Amino acid sequence: MRQLLVFGERDDAEEVAETLGEWFPELGVPRVVRETLAGEDDAEDAQWVIDIQGLGEDMLAKVDHLVDQYDGWREMG
């Protein structure tokens, strides 16, 4: 299942992507993209997003803890 990890700051998203690449080498280092999410109409409100797939519930709990440390959140995509 596709998961989107969303952050307000690019540096935070890049650090999380690097950590995920270390934790889950099968993912490689996930790409960080700037994206305007549904309901946001101002380009300045765009968020930094990491798109990941293929992680089980036990792995997602670990991801959630990491994302929380960087003031981000996870959405199903």
Rank of each mutant, 00 (worst) to 15 (best):
M1E: 09
M1W: 05
R2K: 12
Q3C: 04
Q3E: 11
Q3P: 02
Q3A: 10
L4H: 10
L4W: 12
V6L: 03
F7S: 00
G8N: 13
R10Q: 15
R10Y: 06
R10K: 15
D11H: 12
D11E: 11
D12L: 01
A13R: 06
A13E: 07
A13L: 07
E15S: 08
E15R: 14
A17E: 03
A17F: 04
A17L: 03
E18F: 12
T19V: 15
L20M: 14
L20P: 02
G21C: 02
G21D: 02
E22Y: 10
W23A: 09
W23N: 05
F24A: 04
P25W: 04
P25N: 05
P25L: 00
E26D: 13
E26H: 09
V29G: 04
V29K: 14
R31M: 08
V33L: 08
V33D: 09
E35V: 06
T36G: 10
L37T: 03
L37P: 03
A38P: 07
E40F: 09
D42N: 15
A43R: 13
A43L: 11
A43D: 13
E44N: 13
E44Q: 12
A46G: 07
W48D: 04
W48P: 02
V49M: 06
V49F: 06
V49T: 04
V49N: 05
I50W: 01
D51E: 15
D51K: 10
I52W: 06
Q53R: 12
G54H: 05
G54S: 00
G56F: 08
G56M: 10
M59F: 10
M59W: 12
L60K: 05
L60T: 01
L60S: 05
A61C: 05
K62I: 14
K62L: 15
K62C: 09
V63E: 05
D64A: 14
D64P: 00
H65I: 11
H65S: 14
D68G: 12
D68M: 08
D68L: 13
Y70L: 06
Y70Q: 06
D71S: 11
D71V: 05
D71I: 03
D71C: 07
D71Q: 11
W73G: 08
W73Q: 08
W73S: 07
W73H: 15
R74F: 03
R74L: 12
R74M: 13
E75C: 02
M76Q: 13
